[in-house]
Structures are given as structure tokens and as C-alpha cells.
Design a protein around this nucleic acid. Sequence first.
DNA 1: GCCAACGTTGGC
DNA 2: GCCAACGTTGGC
Length: 145
Amino acid sequence: MRCSMIVMNYWLVKQEPEAYAWKDFLREGKTAWTGVRNYQARNALRQMQKDDLVLFYHSVSEKSIVGIAKVLREAYPDPTAKTGDWSCVDLKPVKPFSHPVTLSQIKETPSLASIPLIRQSRLSVMALTRKEFTLILSLGKTHLP
DNA sequence: GCCAACGTTGGC
DNA sequence: GCCAACGTTGGC
């Protein structure tokens, strides 16, 4: 028998809940992840593949990972960019965390202490390894549907 | 091409 | 509200 190995990538995106919160995302059912104006973040957006899983982090006021999303549409030109070469993707909510995972929890977890969220606090789109992703899900007592 | 000045982000 | 970290801009 032949098995087709599906290579899945894992990501984390950040947003200030005052600007666009998980509940707005749920209400809309999907969103275009526009407005990224940092090359490293843009390059991460461009590497996303359909159905990749994406953690949704609320920065500033909440500092917690609140939900799981997935890539609905791969990178295309960001319609909100008037100049420059910028991309966006479409994301769709998968499910909320039953227990949001806080930044301090992540910092306290040795194998998560070096993820870009900690190391590079200003980066707004970043890759995670499968192990990191799975560990965060378990910290949030959350399972994939 | 260097670097000072400046703006932005985000944790504290 | 402060400030560290970091990216960008522009003068030289």
C-alpha cells in the first residue's frame, strides 16, 4: 500500500484584539490577513499552504493564544498595499482554545522559550514546528476537531 | 555603505 | 506611560 505523506506547516499570527479580535474573525467566518509590512512576516505568509494550521495570538492587552485557524487561500497580492510588493492570505477559524495559552505560560515552558514570539517579539507572522504547535495545543487543553 | 535619527511594536 | 528592540530613512 502506498501512503501519501502530507507535509503540514504550522504558523502563528499576531493581532491586537482592539484592532481585530478572534470574535470578529468568528463572526466573519474568514478574513484576509492584510496589512503585513515586514519582509520576514511577508515571507512567512508566502510560505503558507492551503490547510496549514495557524495559531491566533492576541497581543498587547491579552497576550494569549486564543484560537486555531487554517489557511483558506494561499498568498496573493495584498489589496491594501498601495505601494510595494506585499502579500496576504485568507484565513478561516477552526476552533477557539478552551484555555487560552498565555505568554507567561509559553515563557515558562522550556521547549517553547525560544520560539520567535519570545525571541523576536515584534514579528507578526512566524513559523512553528509541529512539536511546538502540539505542545501549545496541550497547554491550552485543546484538541483539533 | 555607514550610521544617526526617527517611527513602530509590544512587553512590562 | 515607558522604554527596549528593531526596521526604515536619509544625510554624508
